[in-house]
Design a binder for these strands. Sequence first.
DNA 1: CCTTAACTTCACAAATTTGTGAACAGAGCG
DNA 2: CGCTCTGTTCACAAATTTGTGAAGTTAAGG
Lengths: 165, 165
Amino acid sequence: MAEPSGTGRDPEVVSRFVEHFAAQLVEAGLPRMPARVFVALLASDAGVLTSAELGEQLRISPAAVSGAVRYLSQVRMVSREREPGSRRERYRVHGDQWYEALTNRETVLKRWEDALRDGVVSLGADTPAGRRLAETLAFFEFVEKEVEAMMERWRAHREERFGRG
Amino acid sequence: MAEPSGTGRDPEVVSRFVEHFAAQLVEAGLPRMPARVFVALLASDAGVLTSAELGEQLRISPAAVSGAVRYLSQVRMVSREREPGSRRERYRVHGDQWYEALTNRETVLKRWEDALRDGVVSLGADTPAGRRLAETLAFFEFVEKEVEAMMERWRAHREERFGRG
DNA sequence: CCTTAACTTCACAAATTTGTGAACAGAGCG
DNA sequence: CGCTCTGTTCACAAATTTGTGAAGTTAAGG
């Protein structure tokens, strides 16, 4: 009877998943509080939680929730909604805009490409180092184009498998 | 006469590129010393430098070089070679094995997928949260497969454009 | 073997990041 | 209007990370 039917979710089980997956994200470079908040939203049934609910579930201060949410909305991983008729704010993880965030790593790619273009010029396109940089640049340009096409294919794949969300 | 021909590289110009590009990588999550060492290798004409050369160019201690190189070889971004007939060690950035490193982010993906599979089971595949996790999992599985194909295409594209390195 | 060159490891100081409590700000409600 | 419920901002203490000097290790060269 680990999960009595009708009782809804076992907070213990939910928490274990949240902490475990969040830990993986942290290891991959995401700051800890944003990671925990994000996964808590991902694991919530409605995909929406209030600041208070997040603070209670994760045992963190309102300030920490605020900071994490600011971070997450800057990188487009969650959106904030003002709940009409209340002073509560609700944070939501849209299935898709979360994938978009991955794509928006593209912004990072763009800056890398800029730096590399400078490098090719300043080291000389006809030098061994310049050629190496040019090839690296070509790789990123290639990836950028491919990722775009890949996301296109994902949307099709997703629709077919899950129906449009 | 910013670059007298025959003089070789202007250390000032090289350094500017190294520090600028490394800064971008740091911003994207790479630790600072590994980023600087990596870019210094990338920008070297031979694609190879000794520990002493790295320390001198970047103005860092032998210990810092050692730590950075350990990191970089763990993530497969540089390889170390013992130089026969000398106690010097040489560090090399292969054009390709650097791309492989990006692909090896796949290892990270695998761990994410494992965590998500657990989540689907423990939250219940028939719950809204479970379905959301399942879709996220499907996305990563999709990406993993696609990246593999993409690298295949890159190798072809690269060969055509640069000849085999 | 002993010396010395080259790199690694370790302990620690400095710098950075993280999360909190407390004061603050703003919007509904009485 | 003022009260109160929410969330934000800020200064700071704690924890973590970073890079260094110094001691340690290994192997080449005499």
